[in-house]
Computed example of a mutant assay.
Amino acid sequence: MIALAHLKEMQKTDFVGIFRAANGKPVNIRLLDPPLHEFLPKTDRDIEKLAREIGKPAEEIKQRVHDLAETNPMLGHRGCRLAITFPEIYIMQAEAIIESAIQIHDEGIAVYPEIMVPLVSSREEIAIIKNQLKEAIQAIFRKEQLVLPFDIGTMIEIPRACVTADEIAEEAQFFSFGTNDLTQLTFGFSRDDANKFLYAYQEQKILPTDPFQSIDQKGVGALVTTAVQRGRMTNPALKMGVCGEHGGDPASIQFFHRLGLQYVSCSPYRIPIARIAAAQASILEEREKVNV
């Protein structure tokens, strides 16, 4: 719990800065997603150092490292699965977000946090996590005698989530399509290793482009389309957008615009291209309306 309290204060410092910079615009914050193994000490020297710092026997830490190690961590103990097994992690993050939002509100700045639960594959997952987060948030509101608007939604990045999006939309207030992981899981390609063979796929015309750079409209795009349609069946007002490198690709942006997605999020260096592509997609849509 001491470690969580320390992390909470660190995160509050970051969130306060983000909310202040947003200056009243909605801020979408994805909860912890990386596999737990990324945070483990890797060498005996690191283990010994950690043992001294936290006052635990090195052998105990070695055993814990062994217990948490994973063969395929990107498909393992990460994303919302952390909240199912260790709910205190996401509760801590939600508290940090809301307490930071209250601080910014007290400065006279409007604030609209959107809390995004990653790697959801079922309604049951997000329902359990959402209830836990809302309970913690309501406790803060009661303590502070203040209520602020906030949303809890999910990142759609697993094929199962796409085909059950109508159920997930019963619990989520927004969808953000994580097209990097969705591409990885749809093709069965490792994003970290695919560069070893994707060049051959393009040379031999098996794939027209790198699917991690430009959305595969026939496969991954079909899943996104399904999720959009099913999500709107349940909640016509569902806010939907894209998070990932595809959000900075002009061809992908045009595809997302045709689906009616409301925003794209991408790496900073892609933002100028994304803005131009989004404007072009909007202009093209208006021209098509006029021609009709």
Rank of each mutant, 00 (worst) to 15 (best):
M1T: 11
A5K: 14
K12R: 15
K12L: 07
D14K: 02
D14M: 03
V16Q: 10
I18V: 12
A21S: 11
V27L: 06
N28R: 14
I29Y: 01
R30C: 10
R30H: 10
D33L: 00
P35E: 03
F39M: 05
P41A: 06
D44C: 00
R52G: 04
R52T: 09
G55C: 01
E59L: 11
Q63N: 09
R64H: 10
D67K: 07
N72Y: 11
L75T: 12
H77L: 15
G79M: 05
G79H: 03
G79C: 07
L82M: 12
I89R: 09
Y90C: 08
I91D: 01
A94I: 01
Q103W: 05
Q103G: 00
H105A: 11
H105Y: 15
D106F: 05
E107R: 10
V111Y: 07
E114F: 04
P118C: 02
V120H: 01
R123Y: 15
E124P: 01
E124H: 13
I129W: 02
K134W: 04
I137D: 04
Q145R: 12
P149I: 08
P149G: 09
F150V: 00
D151S: 13
I152A: 02
G153W: 03
G153Q: 07
P159I: 01
C162Q: 10
C162V: 06
V163Q: 08
A165C: 07
D166K: 05
E167A: 14
E167V: 11
A169F: 10
S176F: 04
T179W: 07
N180Q: 06
N180C: 01
D181S: 04
T186P: 00
K196F: 14
K196G: 06
Y201F: 13
K205H: 12
D210G: 04
Q213V: 11
S214R: 14
D216W: 09
G219V: 08
G221N: 04
A227L: 05
G231F: 10
N235K: 15
A237W: 07
K239C: 10
M240H: 01
E245Q: 12
H246V: 03
P250R: 01
A251L: 13
I253Q: 03
F256W: 06
F256T: 02
H257G: 01
R258Q: 15
L259P: 01
G260W: 01
L261A: 04
Y263E: 07
V264I: 15
S267M: 09
S267E: 12
I273E: 11
I276P: 00
Q280L: 14
A281E: 09
I283V: 15
R287V: 13
E288K: 10
K289Q: 10
K289G: 00
N291F: 13
V292S: 13
